[in-house]
Design a protein around this nucleic acid. Structure first.
Length: 215
DNA sequence: AGCATGATTTGCT
DNA sequence: GCAAATCATGCTC
């Protein structure tokens, strides 16, 4: 397991995250999100992300300006923005764009590949299919919480790394859990992947294929 | 498979 | 006080 991952644990550079958020989103799919622990790496491939961009985006936490909670989103790209919601769930975002501009990509789902037993333990021995197929589920499986807010995504603890597999089928839709006002097709996912989150909530998803020269 | 509900904390109209 | 970038459970078709 360890031997297989070490070659892939070359963290993505800050320059990768300093680009326009909608350009990064499809490029982030298929990369590895890994948490390093004493017991070894825990994580897998990113298969679903959502963009939240700037103070003009009504669904973005920075819509009403900077607060104590959203400060990390204004920080340098390539770091984590972790927040707590609905009374029980931590959400992990990758901060994007230049420092001072609030934008991030919410990591919504993971295809679990490393440290399965640790994940099952934290999640309460679930089926593998539901281990990390949602933003709250994956943070719990990986042990990510408020202590990780602001942490670098190049380690030592959390690492986003690896190459994007060629030919990955990318699809787009509206964002989950975002009301009418904030509708934009800013959810990107690996089409057909079993760990993409279930899209409940009266879906006017307007799913579409994404093809825009990221290959 | 799809809908309704309770859990439970934080930030700010 | 209320709404929130959610999840698990329990109910109904």
């Amino acid at each position: 397991m360890r031997r297989a991952t070490t070659g892939l644990l070359r963290p993505l550079s800050p320059a990768f995250f300093r680009r326009p958020t909608l350009q990064i989103a499809p490029d982030l799919l298929g990369r590895f999100l890994i948490v390093l622990e004493n017991g070894g790496p825990v994580g897998g491939r990113i298969v679903e992300v959502e963009a939240y961009i700037g103070e003009d985006d009504p669904a973005c936490h920075a819509f009403r300006g900077r607060t104590q909670r959203n400060t990390a989103m204004y920080g340098p790209p390539g770091h984590a923005y972790v927040y707590f919601t609905y009374g029980n769930h931590w959400m992990l975002n990758a901060v994007t764009e230049r420092e001072g501009f609030p934008a991030a990509l919410l990591i919504r789902a993971l295809e679990p590949l490393h440290g399965l037993s640790a994940m099952r333990l934290r999640r309460g021995s679930d089926k593998d299919r539901t281990l990390t197929n949602g933003p709250g589920k994956l943070t719990k499986a990986l042990g990510i919480d408020g202590g990780d807010n602001g942490a670098s995504l190049r380690g030592p603890r959390i690492i986003i790394a690896g190459r994007r597999p060629p030919g990955l089928p990318v699809a787009v839709s509206g964002r989950v859990g975002v009301s009418e006002g904030g509708y934009v097709p800013w959810r990107f996912y690996v089409d057909g992947n079993l760990w993409v989150s279930p899209y409940r909530n009266g879906t006017r998803a307007t799913k579409g294929r994404y093809s825009d020269g990221v290959e």
